[in-house]
Nucleic acid binder design. Structure first.
Lengths: 202, 202
DNA sequence: TGTTTTTTGGACCCTTGGGTCTAGTTTTCG
DNA sequence: CGAAAACTAGACCCAAGGGTCCAAAAAACA
């Protein structure tokens, strides 16, 4: 967000953010402003015209991109069979996890967790926490409708989320996995939903 | 590990590692050798006598402390009821996750995943991967003995591991949670084991 | 067209931090 | 005790990088 409303080139502002996200993904917080400028095809001074400092640049990034983390929020309506709804939720989660840009950002938040705990907390609450909450609400609804028998929806939601995210999350963060194919995602999602239904079915 | 076998003070070597782990936990890879020296009550030169460089110091740390991550490896024998064995496995995992030193180290590995992928991979394989493998072997055994009906032990192990580690892992990494109490750990472990048995019981 | 603002590129300042060097002190061991 | 090795404190070198400054080019605007 340009600080002055003058003749500042808005497109350059976006280019800077794009470049920044790229460089930060690769180099972490140690990314240099010089390299960001180079990749945005912009002079270093221009970055400082748009965002006052490195910290503010990162803050702008976070503001714009929390959506990436918040993606797996949608919880399919109750019009489908619960197993299919759960599987579809799982697919959304997995795709979000495997997205390299999102996990690069997550690595960034973890890296900054000590110095900027508020950012880390905000990301956590907008992302995983909100997502689990929606899932829990869904489980409550299904239980009330007699299609499931979940006694502790919050815990059940954590369990399901954990089954799906599981090891993939950690291996993504450690840069060990080379991602999942779409058929693998389908298979994991279907299997998780099936087992969950068996554990919590009426 | 001291590079020369001379009259080097071994105790100082340990003190350096202890200080290093502390400072690295707090400051991440940006920790300064100066501060490590200060906290170890040792001169900077002494650190360089023991470990030749910052990278080697960190490597020594990793060598010594992989055990922290590798802790949740023990898989109770088949003499117990599977539900109790699973619950006890889950308790071990959760205690390891909540250990602040271990999660600080994990944050370090994630931070270094880009520059030192081999370290990250080694940690992953010695830790979560080995742990899941043992769990999978246990599930196979129990299935062969007719006490469980697990068709895909590897996937089932991931599911159980995920249920247990679940959100706690991520919130630990993001520094959001203030840890779990022992009763909470017991409850989660018991519940996870119970639900898993229901999902995979004969 | 002329004025104002932005952009550019590159020099520049300054702090941080890895790593070395030195001179003097302490420890270890024969 | 005396020599060899380790340790200490602190000065020091050097590179990287955040941030500023400046003169010239390029847009934007009236």
């Amino acid at each position: 967000m340009p600080r002055v409303a003058g003749q500042i080139d808005l497109a350059k502002g976006e280019a800077i953010l794009d470049a920044a996200i790229g460089v930060l993904s690769e180099r972490g917080l140690a990314a240099s402003m010089e390299e960001i400028a180079r990749r945005a095809r912009v002079s270093k001074q221009t970055i400082y015209n748009h965002y006052g400092s490195k910290a503010e640049l990162i803050a702008a990034l976070v503001d714009r991109r929390v959506a990436d983390i918040t993606a797996p929020l949608e919880m399919p309506g109750a019009d489908e069979h619960p197993e299919e709804a759960l599987a579809s939720f799982a697919r959304i989660m997995l795709r979000a996890l495997v997205n390299p840009r999102a996990s690069a950002l997550m690595r960034l938040y973890i890296q900054g967790a000590t110095e900027a705990p508020d950012v880390a907390r905000a990301v956590f609450e907008a992302g995983p926490k909100a997502s689990r909450a929606r899932l829990a609400a869904f489980l409550s609804r299904e239980t009330a409708a007699g299609r499931l028998a979940v006694d502790d929806p919050a815990q059940a939601a954590e369990f399901f989320g954990g089954m799906v995210a599981g090891t993939y999350q950690l291996s993504e963060l450690l840069g060990v996995d080379r991602g999942l194919t779409e058929p693998q995602i389908d298979h994991i999602a279907a299997e998780a939903a099936r087992r969950f239904l068996r554990a919590y079915g009426g």
